[in-house]
Design a protein around this nucleic acid. Structure first.
Lengths: 240, 240
DNA sequence: CGGGTTTTTGAATTTTATCAATGGCTGTGG
DNA sequence: CCACAGCCATTGATAAAATTCAAAAACCCG
């Protein structure tokens, strides 16, 4: 309790792999150091289309994706949906603590998550130097990603949005050591549309266009091979 | 240094006025408690259209707006611009620490800011219990606001975007104790357009429509009187 | 008061959405 | 194992929304 400071920002090391995973383990619960408050965490299987939480729920837990992909979205009263982010294994959901969830989260496919009571997070913040700092950096990264998406939604064409979406998946794969140009899309066209602020039809038409210009190849509905990454990048940032 | 913990999230009080202002003062530098590392802060006058920082600059400082409004934006290579947020007096810019600025900030009108070296922020985090917690909550709020804007950009019509924009200004004024339905818009139509992902012409046309339906009244180009707040809210969330 | 900028308005065009129908994949039960 | 049902994706035709191009009007600052 006495040594519970969060490290000064200027002394933070450059982010490479998520530092929070040092406390939370990569993907397996066996990696959680006991004695840090994690005796209270639990795993939960979430089937496809099942919700993790709903907008307005009290934020009693933070979640870490262990398997599968979780979509976080907001709704308008008439049903229009905006997916604000997709969360992949290893990532934390609910870092932003405002008391109540401001959006809903549902599994896009069969998934597994670790549920971390806020109390346990508090304990880590209070007892583990650097944990608060790590959370702050993750939160900063999430804000940065969201602002990047604002640029996409506000200023890019349908084609540029789709290209940007896929480029970012390729980059994330590369960061995670997956050096393949085949990308897996666990979400439906409709979910991609709701993430990019488009309709299913527009998404589909632009997949077709990219296919016809041999920038990508559709191996199946959920597997895309990027044939020309640099061209896809050029399309993504509007310099094509 | 010994008591430098950040408060557990579950013990955070409900946000009313920004807690960081307890350390930074409301708007006047005289309110800064000395001895907290703030001997190193400085004030800076920023004239209209002058930049506070540019994308790619090293994040050596955090800034607090003292007077005026600062626009934070991202650019595409061909010049398309997306303004990601407007910052008003009292607000902090650069809470998100990723090493380098991922966007640019410029004064929309003549402004004054306090420049806070990151070292000074580090000192506060390390010595003032609750400061890190306060920063985390502000960061969470900023993420929440940005996600709300994602919903606007991705799923709302031009008219709904404009109504949402003005409703949020009315609400912010109300939060700050300004109980007037007259709102001041220090930014140009072009800047509003770049914030809402629209063109100047579309913004102007929708101002005219709102005027014709007597929801608002344009006192001048920069002063709008909201005649029917509940109707504006209905338009904003698509239930009109 | 004047000049330059900003805002508004109009007409034509482009982009994306909507409506409608077909095609294709998957998983299940006969 | 095959047929079928249901969902998902694609394609086409049309409509709506917003952009673009162009010009006039209003505003603001010196």
């Amino acid at each position: 309790m006495l040594n519970s400071q969060i490290k000064p920002i200027s002394q933070q090391p450059a982010a490479t792999t998520g530092p929070v995973s040092d406390w939370l383990g990569e993907t397996r619960s066996s990696q959680i150091p006991v004695g840090l408050g994690f005796r209270t965490t639990s795993e939960r299987a979430v089937s496809a289309h099942e919700h993790v939480y709903l907008e307005g729920d009290a934020q009693t837990h933070m979640y870490q994706v262990l398997e599968g992909v979780i979509g976080v979205y907001k709704l308008l009263t008439d049903g229009r949906r905006q997916i604000v982010t997709f969360h992949y294994p290893g990532e934390l959901i609910g870092l932003d603590q405002t008391g109540y969830f401001i959006d809903s989260a549902e599994a896009l496919c069969s998934a597994r998550i670790r549920c971390i009571p806020i109390d346990a997070v508090d304990t880590l913040i209070a007892t583990e130097p650097g944990f608060g700092q790590a959370m702050m950096r993750l939160l900063s990264t999430e804000l940065a990603d969201t602002r990047e998406q604002l640029l996409s939604l506000g200023r890019k064409s349908a084609m540029e949005k789709l290209a940007t979406f896929m480029v970012r998946i390729v980059m994330r794969n590369k960061r995670n050591g997956i050096d393949s140009n085949s990308i897996h899309l666990p979400m439906t066209r409709s979910e991609i549309a709701d993430y990019l602020g488009l309709t299913v039809e527009t998404v589909s038409r632009n997949f077709t266009k990219l296919k016809e210009s041999t920038v990508i190849r559709l191996c199946s509905n959920s597997v895309v091979e990027v044939l020309d990454v640099s061209r896809l990048e050029a399309i993504a940032d509007g310099s094509a």
